[in-house]
Design a protein around this nucleic acid. Sequence first.
DNA 1: CCTCAGGGCTCTC
DNA 2: GAGAGCCCTGAG
Length: 297
Amino acid sequence: MTQKDIIVNKIKNGLILENISDFNAKHIFECGQCFRWIKEDDDSYTGVAYNRVINVRSDYENKKVIISNTDIEDFNNIWFDYFDLDRDYGSIKKKLSLDPTLKKAIKYGEGIRILKQQPWEILISFIISANNRIPMISKSVNLLSELYGQAIFYNGKKYYSFPTAKQLCKAELKDIERCRAGFRCKYINKAVNMLNDGEINLKDIRNMEIDEARAELMKIPGVGIKVADCILLFSMQKYDAYPVDVWVKRVTEYFYLECDTKLSDIHDFAQKRFGNLAGFAQEYLFYYARELKIGKS
DNA sequence: CCTCAGGGCTCTC
DNA sequence: GAGAGCCCTGAG
């Protein structure tokens, strides 16, 4: 199960991973793929995933990661996959670095890994993300969890699991509106009902080819091409997806194309240039563009 | 194909 | 204290 070169050792209330490459907590949790990880004063990150709360601290130079509030069993069953530890990011970065722009972007976000998150949570989170800001998205996702998820205690603090579709189907539209997601609440409500009615099955979608999967996801209200691509990339392992948000549009146009390029042309370009690594390229570019505010006049 | 409204909140003027 | 804009979608 565990990748050969990573050494896993037990410590008090957690694990220490040694000889681990391409893992930087800041890069992973702040590259826009997740909304439930909070930076602590000591630069570690605490987050909720798979009904658990863990704290993650990374030391990139010394190739070490400390995961607190977990054990070997959960590491093997959950976190190894969640952090995509079986993947050789070194070789991905090497291939993408042949492109000089990507080389710069990768230097900036060298410790990014694409988390394998749960499709249901990602679907709702990215419906909320439409025309919204990251702090607001986090706020709404946390409110939904507080209102309909389950409490989990860690270090004297209360956290909440992301509610299941069953837990959320008890909520009516006016209840969902309490998460302050505005006009997106009606989409969440509809999505919940479609899943509970079996009109949409995320497991089936995950097993489809990317184009069919995307078309299926876009049947859900509030899911357009960008949100669908985020769901495909962040929770369904479709690594050729290239979600184009304002930042990726800006950065792609700035380095490779001209202003006001059509969305379909940006997708075509990404497919040609990055192929089945498009999703990884997108993350490095997004992080780079947003941190340095590239392309923003 | 194009344009525009749309929660709520924050940043800018 | 108004106005723009936000990891965008859907209606026209």
